[in-house]
Simulated scan of single mutants.
Amino acid sequence: MKKILLVTASMIALGAVAPASAADLAPQPYTKAPPYVAPTPIYNWTGFYIGGHVGGAFGGNDNVLAPGFGGGNDGVFMGGVQAGYDYQFAPNWVMGLEANYSFLDTSSSFANRGLGSVTGRLGYTWGPALLYVKGGYAWADTRFSNGFGGDGGRDGYTVGAGLEYMFTQNWSGKLEYQYYDFGTVNVSDSLGFIGSFRNDQHTIKAGLNYRFNLGGPAVARY
């Protein structure tokens, strides 16, 4: 009987001590889970690229060296190649350097038959899209004959703008306008000077580039 009483008394004492010990413990802090943020893709424009383009070339109002001048339509088909390098920084700006050459579809004995350029470009990118402007040196592959001469036929300048879209890690497509100005060309015959005109050209083209992406593939930011 005494053993039973001792066991009962011990259990009662333990029951009284346990709640007091639990009360001395500090409450567990509550941490709210951060809200879910969907990953934002980052497209990398840094690296070398090569590509090709097709489009149309249109001479200025009085440019008799335009491929289609005098034929009822001063626009002709053009196609060519381009290569360059881009560098992305800050982090949505892209600057680069590009070399470009376009063949013009003409059989004229004196028209511009090709247009080349070396340009710098600066653009702003948001995701896979890049809006840019460009400008630099231009060169015309021109047949000087039939009384045409002067220093306005081959070297000049070019400016333009375009939109490029990166639809995979290594491939991008673009739409671009580019203006070429080669200065004034003099016209003369055996008797001397006849007149002059502006040798300028407008081009609109669609292009496709393969990008080597030296900076690595596109990644996701969380």
Rank of each mutant, 00 (worst) to 15 (best):
G72I: 02
W126D: 12
A99I: 14
A23K: 14
D105A: 10
G135Y: 00
A33G: 11
A20K: 11
S145P: 05
A22W: 09
G84V: 07
Y179Q: 03
G116L: 03
L130N: 12
K134N: 12
P41F: 03
T46N: 07
G60S: 09
N44V: 10
D62R: 06
V94Q: 08
G47L: 04
F58M: 15
V133L: 12
I50L: 10
N92R: 13
G68V: 00
G160Q: 02
A57L: 05
G84S: 01
G216N: 03
V64C: 08
A83R: 08
L5Q: 14
Y36K: 10
P128E: 13
D200H: 01
V94P: 09
Y137R: 08
G51A: 02
D24P: 02
Y87H: 15
G156P: 02
A129M: 14
Q28S: 15
G173F: 08
Y87P: 05
G183N: 05
R211L: 01
T203K: 00
T158R: 00
Y222G: 10
Q201Y: 05
Y137M: 11
S10R: 14
L97N: 01
G135T: 03
M95E: 09
L130A: 04
V76I: 07
Q169V: 13
T184W: 01
Q201D: 14
Y157Q: 09
F212L: 07
T125D: 00
P27L: 11
G68I: 00
G149C: 05
S102E: 04
L14W: 12
N170I: 07
W45P: 07
W126P: 05
D141C: 10
N61H: 12
L65N: 14
D141V: 13
F193V: 10
K2N: 12
T158V: 10
I194K: 00
G120L: 08
A220G: 08
F103P: 01
G120S: 06
G60D: 10
Y43L: 09
S196A: 09
V17Y: 08
D74M: 01
F182E: 10
P41K: 03
W45L: 05
P27A: 15
S196P: 06
A138Q: 04
T142V: 12
P91Y: 12
L122G: 14
M166A: 15
G80V: 01
A140I: 06
S190L: 13
G156T: 03
W45S: 04
N44G: 09
N186Y: 11
A220S: 15
G114W: 01
P217Q: 12
V187L: 02
A140L: 06
P39V: 15
G15M: 12
G195I: 09
G116D: 00
N199T: 01
P29D: 06
A220P: 00
G71N: 13
R221S: 11
I42M: 10
Q201S: 10
F182K: 05
Y101H: 05
R198S: 13
A129S: 12
G147N: 06
N170R: 10
K174G: 13
S196Y: 02
M11R: 13
F103E: 03
F182Y: 12
V17G: 07
L97T: 07
Y49R: 07
D24I: 11
P91H: 15
A26Y: 14
G55Q: 06
R121P: 04
R198I: 11
A9K: 13
T31W: 09
